[in-house]
């Protein structure tokens, strides 16, 4: 589904991603872990198409198409979804209008008519239930005055509404209490099928107790320095990141 080859990216001349190689297949859950500043969030942003970052080398293929060549909106319509670490507040735009615009943009991309309003409302109600989102919340402006938990639930709600092929969760667990974490993780798990894939980016192992990965990769200094199964996450939880840093720095 996703093939990242030797991906390098920089911001203001500073190289953040330093040759990433990663392949994700349908039905798989991958986790990327790593210390702060290792490039985890940059990788997520680059995949979603944020133009703050300049791709200097490498390629990303998504379902056989050149992802880097696409606008952020086209990437979304092709099936990439990024759950933001810090979702933006948008005053004056209600969640309902926002997600309706998004759903209909996806439909238009596929050559479909806009979803009839009654069907849309039913669809939205279903997906809200999935993340135990308070009904009134969708009338409010996007993320404005939301608690940390509400913001993250809103991200997973959008994920549910847009049904992407590849969901990228950027530090979705950060700042969540255990109840909110459980709800968010359950939402993600219920949306999992054999045809879609999930890339979980996290600093902590905690989330991976709920969203169990098939593969764990450790990102450090803009490169994947180690890959393994879910036991690698346990090892990192126990020993921290220092031994990896030492290993990498020792080798280089």
């Amino acid at each position: 589904m996703l093939k990242i080859k030797n991906l390098k990216a920089s911001i203001e001349g500073k190289e953040i991603l330093n040759g990433i190689n990663l392949e994700i297949k349908a039905g798989e859950v991958h986790a990327i872990m790593g210390p702060n500043g290792s490039g985890k969030s940059t990788l997520a942003s680059v995949l979603a198409g944020r133009d703050l970052f300049k791709v200097t080398a490498g390629s990303v293929e998504f379902e056989g198409k050149d992802l880097l060549d696409m606008s952020p909106e086209d990437r979304s319509c092709e099936g990439i979804f990024l759950a933001f670490q810090y979702p933006v507040e948008i005053p004056g735009v209600s969640i309902t209008n926002f997600i309706k615009a998004a759903v209909n943009a996806h439909r238009e991309y596929k050559g479909l008519d806009p979803m009839p309003p009654s069907q849309f409302l039913k669809f939205m109600k279903e997906k809200k239930a999935l993340v135990e989102m308070e009904s009134k919340l969708t009338n409010r402006s996007v993320n404005e005055g939301f608690s940390g938990g509400e913001k993250k639930k809103n991200e997973i709600f959008q994920l549910a509404m847009l049904e992407p092929k590849l969901a990228i969760l950027d530090e979705t667990d950060s700042g969540l209490d255990i109840d909110a974490l459980r709800i968010v993780a359950n939402g993600v798990n219920k949306l999992k099928t054999k045809d879609n894939a999930t890339l979980v980016i996290t600093h902590y192992q905690r989330l991976l107790d709920y969203i169990v990965p098939d593969f764990v990769h450790v990102l450090y200094n803009g490169r994947i320095v180690r890959s393994g199964g879910k036991e690698l996450a346990m090892e990192l939880e126990e020993k921290g990141y220092d031994w990896i840093k030492a290993e990498v720095n020792g080798v280089s």
Binding site: A48, G49, R50, D51, S71, P72, E73, R75, S76, C77, F81, L82, F84, P87, V88, I90, F98, I99, A101, A102, A105, H106, Y109, Q158, L162
Partner: peptide, 11 residues
């Protein structure tokens, strides 16, 4: 905010 909307498929 622009990127947030675009990342959801909105042109």
């Amino acid at each position: 905010a622009m990127f947030y909307l675009q990342s959801r498929g909105i042109p």
